[in-house]
Write a protein that binds this DNA or RNA. Structure first.
Lengths: 339, 339
DNA sequence: GTTAGCACTCACAAGTCCGGAGTGCTAGTG
DNA sequence: CACTAGCACTCCGGACTTGTGAGTGCTAAC
């Protein structure tokens, strides 16, 4: 009973603080939420909560503010995820459905997420490690340059330009192309390295330089991790908090310009496909101590693929953002499956 | 003589204001710059400059601040472009030289520009209207989906996924592919529409749906304007001006998220390939009244291709930014020519 | 366990004051 | 005629003061 009320008080504090961005006091608390007790009682509870580290006061004799620990407890125990409204769901679905290729899906997703959460949104490209080769093309552009185009069964196209030292023989190139096509087409990316290891042996000495460089390029293409690309959107929303957390915009913006940082923010794969919330200093990134990150894995064909999420101030609307991230992750997974 | 000194005064005011971001007074002016006259004389000049609209005072009895008009005169008549240092030039050259494809060049360029100017940088994709078709590939991904890959002589790869209503016949697809390849390969983009207009006639009735949709997709691909893509970088630099122009970060960030806006900022083609400067409200974009934009065309093979530039507060280092934009435009043009 | 009452603490806003930087004007000088 | 020196005036901005109110912790009573 007593424990229950304390949690209720914490919840109320978080909610009020998120709404107003101002320290919340005992009196205001009993007025806004109908807890059936007096301010004095609340004060006792608040003192206890403060002892346990869930809330803090910016100055003596000011209201209380949730600590990172407080938010943590809040999201873990208290907040029911509030489902999106059906118009929202419809909008998501329609918006994503009209995308034409992978790049487009990524861009649209990040915009969508930024728009509904009013936060900065991140979307990681899906991992393609399970792809296999559908087609490969080698085309000479000039006497010393050629282009390799790799098409996967999921419809993704990878390109590489190759600069050769000597002039390229059309005949040799055609030969390599034909044999390479036979060797790798239909094969999963994972088995390409092995296939290539024995590949160059079948060509005469004078073609070795060309074969070698093509081989190396292909190897590079199939082992490159496309899932290390992250798209970003909605940075303008950061500026809205100009007052609320004042000086910290610049480091945050700077951090967000680094791909590496974005990847770290999205975090290591969470084992299940639930939503993950990292609050304040729980983040592994320098300069983002006053931000929280809400992420979810999104899957293609029931296998976890990549992450997406939003970044915002610690005093964000967790319930709303969690719901949005979850919903968008679901829809994106579905869309990518269809394609 | 008198005219000369007035211009010198304006120049001094702009320089000091850019350096300090504070209104500059007559006394400070004679101290910092060795104009051989007394503050009183400067005051007379300042009064004249104010009458003509080149400077203004924020409050009565405060120093003067350049107006947009003042900056305009400054960049038009006064500032000698200060050339980059040779280490800087070397850095640019090395940095860009190691890029591997067009996307990479764009990304690197925008980073580079942002870094040397400490401003927000924009780079527009080069126009490909002069490209011609090097190769075209049609590949079925499933029974109803196929992918079209278009390779241009400049080494650019365009992809399109096509969703068909009925099942795709491998034979028909191969037939179309072969004839299409013959028809369009080597042809410039500009002549593709005409070629296609007579193309579908050679196929039997039952193949028409497939031919038609492929044709339409190709047409779309060659007429799409890739030069309507703009990459953006260095937004973190905006936050540095948190104090200097305070409330305006959000609208600027918002504007910068819109591709359309970025294109308008880069502006219509300036006739010559000089650097263009748009100051304050000279900008055609809402919400960017307190920013200036420095742009330049960069050319591929001596034909103007696209624009790049930087966006910053009106009190920016025009001389430095103009030099940087010009230099980067030059180098990018050169790199793209080589590729 | 809860509540009412009370003394205490501070942040913050409003008010006041003052210095100093900057101005325009006028009279004087080469 | 251009420049300068001096002067009275303006007014922003920082420092200081004050008052108020929200909020607290504690104690005693219910």
């Amino acid at each position: 009973m007593l424990e229950d009320r304390r949690l209720a008080v914490l919840r109320a504090i978080v909610e009020d603080y998120v709404a107003t961005h101002e320290p919340v006091g005992s009196k205001a608390l009993v007025e806004r939420h109908h807890l059936g007790v007096s301010p004095a009682t609340i004060r006792n509870d608040m003192a206890a909560l403060e002892d346990e580290g869930y809330i803090a006061q910016p100055h003596t004799s000011a209201g209380r503010v949730p600590t990172d620990l407080g938010y943590r407890l809040f999201v873990d125990r208290l907040s029911g995820v509030k489902p999106l409204s059906s118009p929202e769901r419809r909008a998501i679905s329609e918006f994503l459905d009209s995308s034409v290729d992978l790049d487009d899906v990524m861009v649209r997703t990040v915009r969508l997420l930024a728009q509904i959460t009013k936060q900065v949104a991140l979307v990681q490209y899906p991992s393609l490690s399970r792809s296999s080769v559908r087609h490969i093309e080698l085309i000479a552009l000039s006497t010393t340059r050629l282009i390799m185009v790799l098409i996967t069964d999921s419809g993704r196209v990878e390109q590489r330009t190759i600069e050769c030292l000597g002039p390229i023989s059309e005949v040799a190139l055609g030969d390599i192309r034909a044999r390479l096509l036979v060797a790798v087409s239909g094969q999963p990316f994972s088995s390409i390295p092995e296939i290539l290891s024995a590949f160059s042996g079948q060509f005469p000495e004078e073609m070795q330089p060309l074969v070698t460089i093509i081989q190396a390029t292909l190897l590079d293409a199939v082992t490159e991790r496309i899932d290390e690309r992250v798209v970003l959107g909605g940075t303008a929303h950061l500026a809205r908090y100009g007052e609320a957390f004042p000086l910290s915009i610049q480091p945050v913006l700077e951090a967000l310009e680094e791909q590496v940082v974005l990847l770290r923010l999205l975090g290591e794969a969470s084992t299940n496909n639930m939503v993950t919330v990292r609050i304040g200093h729980e983040n592994p990134v320098e300069g983002m101590e006053s931000t929280s990150v809400v992420t979810a894995r999104y899957g293609i064909a029931h296998s976890a693929a990549a992450s997406l999420g939003v970044v915002g101030p610690t005093h964000m609307d967790y319930a709303g953002n969690i719901a949005a991230v979850q919903a968008v992750a679901q829809y994106v997974g579905r869309i990518l499956d269809e394609q």
